[in-house]
Design a protein around this nucleic acid. Sequence first.
RNA 1: GGGCGAUUAGCUCAGCUGGGAGAGCGCCGCCUCGACAAGGCGGAGGUCACUGGUUCGAGCCCAGUAUCGCCCACCA
Length: 896
Amino acid sequence: MSERIKELEDRTRFEPGEVEPRILERWLASGLFHPEPEGEASENYSIAIPPPNVTGSLHMGHALNGSVQDTLIRYHRMKSGAKSPPTRTKWILGTDHAGIATQAQVEKALRAEGRSRQEIGREAFVARVWEWREHYGHTIVEQFKRLGASCDYSEERFTLDDAYARAVAKVFVTLYEKGWIYRDRYIVNWDPGSRSAISDLEVEERHETDTLYSIRYDLQGGGSVTIATVRPETLLGDTAVAVHPEDERYRDIVGRTAILPLVGRHLPIIADDYVKMDFGTGQLKVTPAHDPNDFEIGIRHDLDQVSVIGEDGRMTAEAGERFAGLTAMQAREAVVAELEREGRIVAREEYEHEVPYSHRSGERIEPLISLQWFMSMEELASPAVAAVREGRVRIVPDNHRRVYLDWMENIRPWCISRQLWWGHRLPVYYCETCGHVNVALSTPDGCGECGGHLRQEEDVLDTWFSSALWPFATLGWPEQTPELTAFYPTNVLSTARDILFLWVARMIMMGIELTGQVPFSDVYIHSVIQAPDGRRMSKWLGTGIDPLDEIERHGADAVRFGLLAMSSTQDVRYSAEKVQQGQALANKLFNAARFALTRIGASLGEAQAAAVEPASLPRTVEDRWILSRLARIEADTATRIESYDFSHAALGIYDFVYGELCDWYVEMVKHRLPDRAEHLQGGAAESAAQQEDREALAATLLYVLRETVAVAHPLIPFVTEELWSYLDDGGGLLAGARYPSNVGPSNGGEALDLEAEAVLQRTIEAVTLLRGWRDSVGARAGLTIPVRLSAEGYEATAPLLARLARLDLSAAVAGGDTPVASIPIPGGTVDVLSGDGVDLGAAKRRRESAAQKLLAEIERVEGKLERPGFVEKAPAAVVEGERERLERLRAELAAL
RNA sequence: GGGCGAUUAGCUCAGCUGGGAGAGCGCCGCCUCGACAAGGCGGAGGUCACUGGUUCGAGCCCAGUAUCGCCCACCA
């Protein structure tokens, strides 16, 4: 026995804390995660990681998505089979500069020093953010390593790398030249928190209760109108009052003039069918500069735009002297107070409605008019709609398909400029002389029109603009690099659904437009993990669970297994039990392998060699059974991984390892292994037959363990890699090994042994029954209970059965003694022939309760068969099955 | 307002094209069985949210109701 295996004897537990760093180091040193883009390969397989925020840290969503992607990557890396060239497998890694989020962090740090970005200026600020990124930017990458993620760490990308920035500029220029990117004065979602415009998708609606004020405006020449608003302060910017064109009540006031209270401005009364007749009085104040709907009305009716709230969220000079400088909320109070004094507030009532907030800063959105850059989306969207419709991009699960299509078909222009400093500055240069707008890949020497001096646009692009290029810009696009050729388009994009529009849809649009190909063929939308109580997992609510703490406590394999096992096609609550289950699995597998290896002992070397081609070895029925079950789990796991059913892949492996490999197979073959004491002493005398059986068993056991760790490796890579170093004497890594056999959804069938499965199935049922009976009659191990087994198919397994049920069959009597007790087992009975050690009363009670159960079941089946129409209308196979069952039940009852 | 999803054991969830209600954890009982107590064996526990329908037969299909969750949406 080798020294290493002797060491293994003392490791009674799998210790992730000790093993994981050691295994990780070997993986990283191996170069396995970095595929060469050229040379022979049977297939290419690639995934681009959703780039985490550069200064972020690993949360549960990352951990789940990392587990999903790594399972796919590791599975494909191993998949191609021993004889074909390997699959070239790449997991593209990188981080996102995350404009607003990162800038906000650094600004916060500056504030803590008592400074602001305005104080230090743009250049110094950006330098500061780069420093910040140097300092914190690798945290999350290191955390992905702890999870065991087999990303290509040698080529980490960043969305602000020079090469990446060139791709961004190239896209901007291309789309500008097509006329799809343009500059416009338009009402935008202004985020006073980050002092920037944001896109519609970055706005979240919150349900709030406000006061709805009804305010009376006088009409010139007598009469009045009453408008309703929750934002009285915007009244200062009113430029019209609108009614519905078909509203009989107000037909005669259209065209007249209202006087704006507090200001005195003359407001035309206009008719527009946006106005709802049944809301309030049916009279609407129109504030084009501060409400998106009013803005549209303003365009239709050529109304003035009076901006009374500025970009700082405070009232402007246009709001009038007494309000200028107040915050919007202060202005509201002041306006209401004045209106009150004038007696213009007709009513106030509580009003529940949706209020827009910035998803980023959490501040309330202030809609206002601003000069921004936009991208028109219709032309980009339609091929992206077609790609999904035609299945060139498959969305899994497919209920998200319609959501995607609905959104894409009603897509609106995208505001792509941000008033930030951290990001891709727009490649736009304004001429200070003639005002000409120059758009160019690199800074021009002078204005294209007049040669005048140029000033670059201050704004940066929305972070999602650069993220939209991720699958190809990371591979060197627009250059035709070998990487781009080999790995683009990618195979899968895995993400949570919250960024389906924000990111996934835009990647599909940009990918098709710029490369002519869809960026990935599958989109896998994974679960959102909620807190155990069903609330959102968030640091803010204190409901967050840190995956790194969990890894620390239970090991990376356990966390990966747990997350995959709990994931589903919908949101799920975090399940600590599933993680525990994963930890138990790793430990169980470790101990089973440890047991087998230490007990195989002397013949380990030959067994390792034999395990490669085990086809011709002598086999017992349980050996044949486990090989058949192994073929099944291999095929099932492959199918499940390929169909993104990670939960069943994980739980299936658990069931196999516990329910088949350990609880039954290892228990069944224990007695065939040499005694530990013997082989530690160098081996006792054994017969030739015993030796042959032991060697065959050793080879089988090793083969089964090897295949098992290979199947499980994509999900729980650490423990399986550790075991591989004992199970395989080649010195290679499991992560780089290939399944020797049975891999792929279609290959399982031939390896199945249905006969062995059937025999073992019945043996297991029989043992279960006997164990129950043994317990119920108070029998104990070591007692000799003479029994007679009369059941077909048990000749081969009878000794096994007796041993597992801990009954001694050695005193079995063949003759015609009258049994004192009979236990029904599948296909026959076990007769107890004497009362030694048996509580006959209990045996009788047990017999009676068994009979009762059988009778009830018989009644149920009879009823079903007699039900009118059943025999005529049910499928023949179902009817036949029921009849067989009835017969079997009756036979069992008779045996009692 | 529109859409999607959920409701099955004490808890978290499986349940494939309709045909004998399941797992993990928890609970109860037994077990130092020569890998594993992070273990082994056995057991209790369910009106499958509710109402109606289709069907020989419904946890599963259809209609409706209730509760919860998420997404989208310009009624001030």
